[in-house]
Design a binder for these strands. Structure first.
Lengths: 186, 186
DNA sequence: TTCATTTCTTGATTTCAGTCAAGTCAGTGT
DNA sequence: ACACTGACTTGACTGAAATCAAGAAATGAA
């Protein structure tokens, strides 16, 4: 199947699984379709699954009085989750929303636990938490706006194509005007 | 034993363990003593264990050209680890150093895996990753210096007693002068 | 097409935290 | 008692990014 090979390719990057182990993962995964602006996880709900984007894009935001504060951006061929809520299994502070019509695969925490009971091989799925953990290193206040932009340009360039400037500015915690000026100087 | 009851009390907060399960955890844990300025984990090493501070204090810092940039502060009766290195099992960017003569308990990743093989109950140990995950929410650039100080004052007041002002300022990513001024206005 | 709305850019001004600098205070050693 | 050091405070100045404001460009709807 087309979808499965895409997912397997992404899984190969995070661990060493046999064909039968791939099949076990797919047996536990749920295919889902969402329309633009559909909500995948609402603030207050517990994030009990990890997701793989086959097609589309998602963003996570937190309400701050009036406006949406963007926490994470995700494009196709990426795994994502609300890291804090998933790890703690407590209500999420953030909402996850589809930015475009999307197709995703869902692997819930019970399935992951079952898989790990079957074999410690599936511990490697824990590495899916890695990107979020690594990312937080960079977005402490030690980086200047220009450094943040260059970091995204180098490490996640597809974000810049997939989302409007003001989403990226919010994600990078700077004013849209500032991002516009930085981009102006190539 | 004195130490065990301290640790069990801390473990009760994160999960529901039986007496025999407590014993299994202690059987896998290593007791260690460190002197002030002893290094627990050096930059470049993989963080392969989680630690519980029975007595003393620790800090994690990252070298930035000349000066130490403080990443985390830990006081007694807390679990800690280098979150990123532990989750990814890749070399740490940070060094963990004893701020005072300390006594700790060490539970390495192999022991944790063994425990989880014995029983899924020990999955709850994963919750020890929680504090770090929760903390990163707050230290994105959305908070003003005063808000950061108030957050620490409310959630981790013992840090303010345990470490000198300049350590806390570095941890909160602000100039020592700024922290001093904020504190001046109660 | 035209009009309306949103997105992005550009300029002028403001503000808040960082830096620089000087001084106080407490602790240590001689 | 004295100087020396490190921790903290306070004031003056600076600079980078936010804010305010206006307008241009792109998008979409009628």
């Amino acid at each position: 199947m087309e979808q499965q090979s895409i997912v397997n390719k992404a899984l190969e990057k995070i661990g060493d699984f046999s064909a039968s182990e791939f099949n076990m993962i797919h047996a536990h995964a749920q295919f889902r379709q969402l329309k633009k602006n559909d909500i995948l996880l609402k603030e207050g709900q517990v994030c009990s699954a990890i997701y793989f984007i086959i097609k589309g894009a998602f963003y996570q935001y937190r309400m701050n009085d009036v406006d949406e504060n963007i926490i994470e951006l995700h494009v196709d061929n990426e795994w994502f989750l609300n890291n804090t809520s998933f790890i703690t299994q407590k209500p999420s502070f953030d909402t996850i929303k589809a930015y475009a019509d999307s197709e995703i695969l869902e692997l819930n925490i019970h399935s992951i636990h079952k898989l790990i009971e079957i074999s410690p091989v599936f511990f490697q799925l824990g590495k899916l938490l890695q990107p979020a953990a690594v990312r937080t290193q960079f977005f402490d206040n030690t980086m200047t706006p220009a450094e943040k932009y260059n970091y995204v340009l180098e490490h996640r360039p597809r974000l810049l194509q997939s989302f409007p400037l003001k989403y990226i500015a919010s994600y990078l915690k700077m004013a849209p005007e500032t991002l516009s000026r930085i981009r102006g100087k190539h």
